[in-house]
Design a binder for these strands. Sequence first.
RNA 1: GGGCCUAUAGCUCAGCAUGGAUAGAGUGUUGGACUUCUAAUCCAAUGGUCAAGGGAUCGAAGCCCUUUGGGCCCA
Length: 628
Amino acid sequence: MSFKSIIDEIENNLKKILDDLFVSDISFSVETAKSGFGDISSNVSFLLAKQLKKSPKDIALMLSEKYDFCQSTLVSKSEPHPSGYLNFYANWNKLSQLILSESLLDEFGSIDIGKNSAIVVEHTSVNPNKALHIGHVRNIVIGDILSRILEKSNYKVNILNYVDDSGLQVADIIVGFEHLGFAQDPPPGKKFDHYCGDDVYVKTTEKYESDSSLQEIRKNTLKELEKGTSETALFADKITKRVLYAQLETCWNLGIYYDCLNFESQIIRSGLWSKIFEKLKEMNIIKFEKDGKNVGCWVIRGEGNEEDKVIVRSNGTATYIAKDIPYAAWKLGLLEDPFNYQRFEIPQPGNRILWQTTLENSLESKQNFSGQKVITVIDSRQARLQKIITSLMTKFKSVDDAYIHLGYESVTLSADTAKTLGMDTDGKQTQMSGRKGLYVNADSVYDLLKNKTVEETKKRHSDMMDSEIETISHQVSVGTLRYEMIKQDLDKVITFDLKKSLSLEGDTAPYIQYTHARAVRILEKSKKTPSIDIDFSLLNEKLELDLIRTIGIFDIQVRDAAMNLSPKVIAKYCHDLAVVFNSFYERVKVLDLDDKKLENARLCLVNSFKSTIEKSLGLLGIIAPDKM
RNA sequence: GGGCCUAUAGCUCAGCAUGGAUAGAGUGUUGGACUUCUAAUCCAAUGGUCAAGGGAUCGAAGCCCUUUGGGCCCA
């Protein structure tokens, strides 16, 4: 509720007025006003202009007069603007009380879209043969923040990570280990995932070009991985688990946690595919081609101009799409669950328990990680495949948007950064490539940021203990990285530049975190716990009201973000909130006022701000330190 | 050849879903504010035919159509 209360009040009153005018079916807007135009604005007059055959200006005037007779508790007056907008002024005395007292509650900003239904968010899903690079960070941050927003919207979120442990990329490092003599342990000081990706994978794929006999070995290795019984397969299991653990360390360090790990190998061996294959035939979704170029294949008919998609080749083998179909169906809970569950070997930090599927017997009880809805976070290069899965799933499940592919554009490297990695791109940005070793590892970006923030923090607090500097720098570095990856639209390519992307000033996480530290310092220095029992009419300066208003629209922003699956909405909100607070901070004094009542009131406002910025940053998975 | 995305200030981007008031930030450049509740901050100046053209509308950065540049996917 909060600021939403006054919007609702106006909306209801306007609806009544329209009823009296015998106007219906008008979906007008009631929104926070642009600065200088009151507190709330409605476009209702514009929409009525045609029907009533009057100018928006006249209508606004008429509506405003009628509005004076409406019952209002939170609105102090309405005002027609010559442009045609109908503007409203809040009764700040009451509204402030409402907003500030609610802002202190844990559930402030919570909304109920999900009705406690289960929703699946799958993200990360990085091949377990390499370390996470900066492009993967965009994926995991989007997925993680989205999950937090959905939880705030009363969904029960199941966070999954799909481990493709039987694909070509894994086969490649196994070839490296088994046939090219790579040591099983990394050189001292190197993480196992870095070693596999930077050394084993890159060098093995390089060898393919000079040594053609390796292609045969590669094929055989892949086959053994799929069968899963040979010594090679067992060895691969060990290696991928080790890489996976190293990858999870990177994720956990960034504050990203999961509920369950799924393994492609198990999905293949579980027989889920044959079940779904039968179902597809039964439902007549796939057809057996008796002639044409796909003769002998099972295909999905393309819609419109699109080509038919082969699912099972004429030789009986399934295409790569066929691996994704059973997993999608499993996530939606469409099939009987063939898996047992056990806890992951290494406990996950924090409160969430990390499970993994297994085909063996388990002492643990059966779990259910499916959802009414499924959101799969994968970059938009996979859009074609995801579109097929989406349309298949709608045939299984009649609910609208049961399966959603949340796509996003990729992260590319700037020309400068590519150059530092030894690739001259002629001044152009370039796609990352694991095969060519052209990428920036997530861990190294974190380390760079960390070193920079440690330096900055030391500069500011020469007498601070190392452990405290460590904690602050960690929170700031994680914040910076997360914010950098989320603040822009999913449809925009992020060109990552090692120098430019590591800024700690301007529209960045540290800017926002810093406002929190400022607020904390004020509260600390006041040496009292602010009481909500204050005279709210004392908070009447523009900068104070701006701050209260911005605090009050938190839940509106959460709704926006959740409905549109748009994490950046929250990033923008955090930034706006910080900007408003910084203006307030610079010009409105809080401590050591002669007027103690006013001081109390302002302390209360600062406290509300602190509480709100913590919650909103929390949705971004960013922790704000008390000192910076 | 087909499909998806994208184009707004020197640079990086909001705003576009749901058309309406003076198109906003950051960064850059120039100048100013630390004996003050922390300057990772604030203030001011600078900077825009919203890619181009057309259409519907009382009204378009936003909707429709066409074209062009850039990115990606498929063939």
